[in-house]
Simulated scan of single mutants.
Amino acid sequence: MARKLSPAERLASAEKDFLLEEIADQSSWDQFIVEQAVFHFGQRHNEWSCNDLRDVLPELGHGFLGAAINSLRTAGIIEHTDRTVPSTQANTHAHRIAVWTLTDKGRAIAAQRQAARAEQSKAAAA
């Protein structure tokens, strides 16, 4: 069985395209997809909270949001801004939730992925 990749390794691997079978073999493929969505959202927004992400994720992804955030935080890809906002989720009664941002490591991974996509586009055009 292949070694389990860290969130940083998965995000940094722009060339790696998981086949449907490989994704199905992953016990945490739902979390992986939500991690990708959080990272993608973070590339387009300086700061965000789970309120913002719940608006763009399908209902199924909501259950993986906390685990994905924790995984990306632990990997050093995102960090808490030391700010909080009230939750908009009805069952939380407006308790405070964290505001997040990409770290330097997260921005470096994003830049690597963008450079790899540009290189692939250039190769395809040639």
Rank of each mutant, 00 (worst) to 15 (best):
F18K: 07
V38D: 02
E22I: 00
R117M: 08
R54Y: 05
H45G: 06
A2K: 12
D82P: 01
K105S: 14
L102W: 06
A125Q: 10
F39I: 05
A94E: 15
S71E: 02
S71N: 04
E15W: 06
A67D: 10
H45A: 06
A111I: 07
L57M: 09
V56P: 03
R3I: 10
Q36C: 12
E59Y: 13
T101R: 15
T81E: 05
K4T: 13
W48R: 01
W100N: 01
H40W: 07
I69D: 00
S27A: 12
K105N: 13
S28T: 14
R96D: 15
F18H: 11
L57F: 07
S13V: 04
S87G: 07
R73I: 01
L72E: 00
A12Q: 12
F39K: 05
Q26G: 07
P58W: 14
S71A: 09
M1T: 05
I78E: 03
T101A: 14
H93W: 14
H95G: 08
L53A: 06
S27D: 15
R3Y: 01
E59Q: 12
Q43E: 14
A90Y: 05
E21M: 11
L19A: 13
L53K: 04
L11Q: 04
D55M: 15
A94M: 11
R10P: 08
E21R: 14
E59G: 02
R73A: 11
Q43M: 12
G42T: 10
V99K: 11
K16N: 09
A68M: 02
I23M: 15
A68N: 02
I77S: 04
Q43G: 14
A24V: 13
Q112N: 08
E59P: 07
V99L: 12
R83N: 13
A67W: 04
A111F: 06
A110R: 05
S49Y: 04
D25W: 03
R44S: 13
A75E: 11
E22H: 02
V99I: 15
K16R: 09
N46R: 08
A14S: 15
L60H: 14
F32A: 03
G66A: 12
G42Y: 02
A14Q: 08
D30T: 09
E21Q: 12
W29S: 14
T101G: 03
G76H: 05
A94W: 13
T81F: 10
L57C: 04
G63A: 13
I69N: 04
H95P: 06
A125V: 04
R113Q: 03
I23D: 08
D55G: 14
A75P: 03
A68Y: 01
R3M: 06
A24S: 02
H40L: 10
F32T: 07
L5C: 02
V85Q: 00
A2W: 01
F64P: 00
A111N: 10
F18E: 08
Q36Y: 07
K122D: 00
Q114T: 04
D25M: 06
F64G: 02
R107K: 15
S121T: 03
H80D: 15
H45R: 15
